[in-house]
Design a binder for these strands. Structure first.
Lengths: 118, 118
DNA sequence: CTGCATCCGAGGCGATACTG
DNA sequence: CAGTATCGCCTCGGATGCAG
């Protein structure tokens, strides 16, 4: 929690709310977080599967983003002691619930596009 | 609409939804968009008022962000022909409705924090 | 007051090659 | 398979100064 985003107060309302928004932004901002969450929303995936499904992502970025998502308790990583090792990634309960935020974003985005474009 | 965010497909679902999410992300991402929207959610404001209320923002960034928000039909800019000129900014109807997205973010953020911290 | 022009550093992200 | 290491670009955002 709290990484690049600073701690200045947004003049929105009470500090708790501002923190909550920042937490959420932290989880969904960046180029690859949402694609990864989206892919994992379909079920457990291995590293290579994610790399294949999320077009154009490099192992470096996939690794980095998964690590951050794990730190923030959005993704759970499981190592299976096979040969060679296999690693599975899945959304935590919290990770799954973020879909509600995405739904709100879709709803607003569609409505806004209609308002603007006519 | 559509600026720095590229047009790759997220493997979330249909293309419309993905576009809608990108539109929304475009409006709320960056360091100052949310603070500005938050401040304007309390009513019409002038440039200098915004600069005072949003701590640490520079005129350069305020100007830049307001311009983008205006381009995306989130903010309406009104010039009053006084001396010296005064300029007022306010949220468009669409801009006001984005509060629903923020609400979803607050709800998830609080719940997530509770889950994680215990 | 309301901005725009310029310069600059930090960090996000991509490309490529390599390891256990 | 599941990552790591290194390099380098490029955009975001801060600082400062100037203009209408």
């Amino acid at each position: 929690m709290e990484k690049t985003i600073d701690k200045e107060k947004l003049p929105l309302c009470s500090g708790e709310y501002v923190l909550a928004v920042k937490d959420t932004m932290n989880v969904i901002s960046g180029k690859w977080k949402l694609p990864i969450i989206g892919s994992l929303s379909y079920g457990v995936k291995r590293f290579k599967e994610l790399e294949r499904e999320i077009q154009k992502i490099t192992p470096r970025m996939l690794s980095k983003e998964l690590k951050e998502l794990e730190l923030n308790s959005i993704v759970k990583r499981t190592v299976h002691d096979t040969t060679p090792v296999t690693v599975e990634y899945e959304l935590t309960p919290s990770g799954k619930k973020i879909k509600r935020v995405l739904d709100a974003m879709v709803a607003w985005g569609l409505e806004h596009r209609e308002n603007v474009m006519g």
